[in-house]
Computed example of a mutant assay.
Amino acid sequence: MAYNSRGDDLDLQKLFADLVRCETRLYNALNERLRSEHGMATSQFEFLRFLREHSGARVADLAAEFAIGAGATSKGVDRLERQGWIVRQINPADRRSSLLALTDEGRRRVEAAERTVTACLSELIEDTLGTRSVADALGLLRSALEQHRIGIPTG
């Protein structure tokens, strides 16, 4: 997939399309693997991983990190809490917000899922790309994901 549409200029629209499609397909494939092997979604893994590295973070911190709304973040946190993977603790500096922390079960889950994520991404990215330029590599990766129908939404 060439990116040069006007001489040496990079076709940014094509690059953007490839980036978005690669991200979507990789996310969907990872989501499918995590659900089947660990009973969690990619978004849950991402939240747990962030909280492992940032114990005591607030819902607002998660929302800022993942560039999503506070309402959606709060709902995701509620689901993790119901699963017993995180706990909310009173924020002594601001009693209107809670501090979030992994439970022992949450820590075990994220560590087990991390091995799956690494293996999955290695299969999908590393085995495909080799030592190509970023633009060529992303085009090749997108083609491979599409050819093998990886990460196609199921619903």
Rank of each mutant, 00 (worst) to 15 (best):
A2W: 01
N4A: 06
S5I: 12
R6T: 09
G7M: 04
L10S: 02
L10E: 12
D11V: 10
Q13L: 14
K14N: 01
K14W: 03
L15W: 07
L15V: 12
L15R: 01
D18A: 06
L19E: 12
E23P: 00
T24I: 01
T24C: 00
L26T: 04
N28D: 03
N28R: 02
M40A: 08
S43R: 14
F45R: 13
L48I: 00
F50H: 14
E53S: 10
E53F: 03
A57N: 09
R58S: 06
R58A: 07
V59W: 01
A60D: 12
A60K: 01
D61E: 10
D61R: 02
D61N: 07
A64N: 06
G71T: 03
S74R: 10
G76F: 06
V77R: 08
L80C: 10
Q83C: 14
I86S: 08
P92F: 03
A93F: 07
D94Q: 07
R96Q: 13
L99K: 12
L100N: 14
T103L: 11
R108K: 11
A113R: 10
A113V: 14
T116I: 14
V117P: 15
L121G: 08
S122C: 11
L124N: 12
G130P: 07
S133A: 14
A144Q: 09
E146H: 02
H148R: 11
I152F: 03
T154Y: 05
G155H: 08
